[in-house]
Amino acid sequence: MLPAAHRLTRPEDFREVFRRGVSAGGSRVVLHWLRGDDSTRDLDPGAPVRIGFVASKKVGNAVMRHRVKRQLRHVMRERLEEFPPGARVVVRCLPAAAGSTSGDFACELDRLINKARERSGSR
Rank of each mutant, 00 (worst) to 15 (best):
V22H: 10
A5F: 06
V63W: 13
R41L: 10
M1Q: 13
D13T: 02
P45H: 10
E78N: 08
S56A: 04
E12H: 14
R79G: 00
N61W: 09
L80V: 11
A116V: 11
S39Y: 09
P48G: 00
A55C: 03
W33T: 07
V75F: 02
D104G: 09
E108F: 09
R117G: 14
A47W: 05
G46Y: 08
V30Q: 11
E82P: 00
I51Y: 00
D44W: 15
L72T: 04
V91E: 02
D13S: 10
A98L: 07
M64N: 03
S102V: 07
L80M: 06
L2K: 05
E82M: 11
L2D: 08
P11D: 02
P11Y: 05
V29T: 11
G86V: 05
G121E: 12
V90P: 00
R19K: 15
P95F: 10
V49R: 02
E108T: 05
L2I: 04
R88E: 11
L72N: 03
L34Y: 01
G99M: 07
G46H: 11
A4P: 10
R92V: 15
P85N: 09
P84I: 01
C107K: 15
R88D: 03
D104E: 12
F105P: 01
E82C: 13
R7W: 01
E82I: 00
V22N: 03
K58S: 11
V89S: 00
S100Y: 11
V89T: 01
V22P: 04
T40K: 12
G121Q: 12
L80R: 12
P45Y: 09
R70N: 04
C107S: 13
L2A: 05
E82S: 14
H6W: 06
V29L: 12
S27K: 15
S27H: 12
R50S: 03
G36P: 03
R20H: 05
P3M: 04
M76K: 01
G21T: 03
V22W: 10
V89K: 01
R77Y: 12
R20T: 02
G21A: 01
M64R: 14
S23E: 11
A116Y: 10
N61L: 06
H74R: 11
V30N: 09
R88T: 07
F53P: 02
G36Q: 04
R20C: 07
S23D: 07
L2R: 09
C107Y: 10
F14E: 03
A87E: 01
S100P: 04
V22L: 05
C93K: 05
S39D: 13
R7P: 00
D13L: 08
S100Q: 13
C93N: 06
